[in-house]
């Protein structure tokens, strides 16, 4: 075959077949490791399945049980509390740090690296490091508090403080949000600030009237991603408090994990996971709906 024939031969392959062929690993991956598990759990959600015995169909019994399961409502409430705290404080904090970093004082690149660093720390090591920080007797936090005359609480052993402690571990990992916000802040057109300077706007006025509307799509993106991250919080409460004290930090994923792998109730765990998925979907939908209205408002003005 001469080289002149080859392009013609290549063009004969239907582009659709070609596209499917090139993306086939991902198509297989989507089906096998995503669609199949999701469908399996939908089916197993209607069974009693101990993993040892074959699954027994029980109809909607798992979902009915959930309604009367006090612990289910408790873990749902705990997870929503965690989400509200982590997303709320995390958004304000990461925006604040990003604005401070973008003032470009000498050394801010180093600070950015330090803030980002915790996001690469393995979650087990991070949870253990914070458990040690929070130690009531010899932890660094209570030692520092004692130096200024405050008797620190038993962070992980006191039901009133345990959830906040777990939230703080999550907040330690806001580095990626900070970096995303910083990139967005750099893209805000300079002319807008120059115009505001002529109008004599205060820094705070500038932030709320110019910066925040300009970066609102990024805020929406970060809020949605951190809602999804918060709903699945798992390792920190497992490692630091094992869900205690008195279920104060028993979060949704931990309850799913216990049902699936400790109580041998894979059917109930599957049903729980589906409800978790729906909760994530509803919260994300709410954030997107709210966000669209706010972003639209900016476009209209």
């Amino acid at each position: 075959m001469t080289s002149a024939d080859r392009p013609i031969r290549v063009r004969r392959v239907h582009p659709w077949l070609l596209g499917v062929a090139w993306t086939s690993p991902w198509l297989v991956g989507l089906v096998v490791f995503l669609a199949v598990p999701v469908l399996l759990s939908l089916i197993y959600g209607f069974t009693e399945y101990s993993l040892i015995e074959p699954p027994i169909p029980v109809g909607a019994a798992n979902y009915r049980e959930m309604l009367g399961d006090g612990l289910f409502w408790r873990v749902l409430a705990n997870t929503l509390l965690y989400t509200v705290l982590a997303v709320g404080i995390g958004t304000v904090l990461s925006l604040g740090i990003a604005v401070a970093l973008e003032q470009r004082v000498p050394g801010s690149d180093l600070v950015r690296a330090v803030v980002f660093l915790p996001t690469v720390v393995p979650v087990v090591a991070a949870s253990l490091a914070w458990a040690w920080m929070f130690s009531a007797e010899s932890g660094l936090i209570n030692t520092l508090l004692a130096h200024v005359g405050i008797r620190g609480p038993d962070w992980l052993g006191d039901g009133r403080w345990a959830m906040l402690s777990v939230v703080i571990v999550g907040l330690w990992g806001i580095g990626s949000q900070v970096v995303i916000y910083a990139a967005a802040l750099r893209d805000v057109p300079r002319q807008l600030y120059d115009a505001a300077a002529i109008d004599g706007a205060t820094p705070i006025g500038r932030f709320f009237r110019i910066t925040l509307p300009q970066i609102s799509p990024t805020v929406l993106f970060n809020v949605v991603m951190s809602i999804i991250w918060s709903i699945q919080v798992f390792a920190a409460p497992l490692i630091m408090t094992k869900g205690g004290p008195d279920n104060a930090t028993l979060v949704y994923s931990l309850y799913v994990y216990r049902n699936a792998f400790e109580y041998g109730r894979m059917g109930y765990a599957s049903a729980l996971a589906w409800v978790q998925f729906l909760v994530a979907l509803i919260l994300t939908g709410m954030a997107l709906w709210l966000g669209r209205r706010l972003v639209h408002y900016r476009g209209a003005s």
Binding site: L34, V38, L40, S41, Y44, I228, I231, Y257, Q276
Partner: peptide, 21 residues
């Protein structure tokens, strides 16, 4: 679009079903 949407699925939702698989 589907690829982007999968980033929105919480990983722990898949914990039990992936184990079964």
């Amino acid at each position: 679009l589907i690829t982007l949407a999968t980033m929105m699925i919480p990983a722990t939702v898949l914990m039990a079903p992936q184990f079964i698989l």
